[in-house]
Design a protein around this nucleic acid. Sequence first.
DNA 1: TTGACGCATTATTATATTCTAATATAATTC
DNA 2: GAATTATATTAGAATATAATAATGCGTCAA
Lengths: 100, 100
Amino acid sequence: MEVIPRKNIHDAAEGLRALAHDIRLSVLCHLLQGPMCVRELMEVTGASQSNLSQHLAKMRLMGVLVNEKRGQQVFYRIANPAFEQLIKALKAIYCPDNCR
Amino acid sequence: MEVIPRKNIHDAAEGLRALAHDIRLSVLCHLLQGPMCVRELMEVTGASQSNLSQHLAKMRLMGVLVNEKRGQQVFYRIANPAFEQLIKALKAIYCPDNCR
DNA sequence: TTGACGCATTATTATATTCTAATATAATTC
DNA sequence: GAATTATATTAGAATATAATAATGCGTCAA
């Protein structure tokens, strides 16, 4: 009946919390275009190294992102392609529709 | 280029915060089935009157819900039908897919 | 017009989140 | 192997969020 069953509400809310921050949401949006390393994410988000690293850690622990070390860099990507739909829905709500 | 433009990121993240709590997410899900009054929402969410009222106030201020007083009851409904897509996307991620 | 009901608001305390700064680690280059 | 680069981790202070309890306020019925 209800769209999200009671037993999944907690996980879903926790998932939302993993995205409910300017920096983390920005990271997710940029990663929709493909994997990026931390330094690149620093540039596009404007966050400090330490701060970004902590946000990335949270998103990793929450299962939103996965990472892979390549040489001395660490690349992050979105763990589940279904996040794209979530972002699209969010855009439909928060971007006055001829968004840009 | 990016799915949510920089200037809208803050509002979108704030919107996510408005939903990123068990009680608030539960409220939103139940309201997908139609408007409900506070007492009914108390029953379905299990929240205390005061606590629920505060969550409803937040969702109202954040533009997620609108309310309407009818006699001595206050009915709440979802402000924007586009939230349904958001919930569907969330379900796709957090409900192991033959959900229930 | 008093009492009960439905809801909102406020104050307080408890807890969680976020940021900055400092330090650590691992890979790379010289 | 010392310095440099890329990233992670920790500690601490600042701020935000959440819950409970108490009170307020409008509406209705008796």
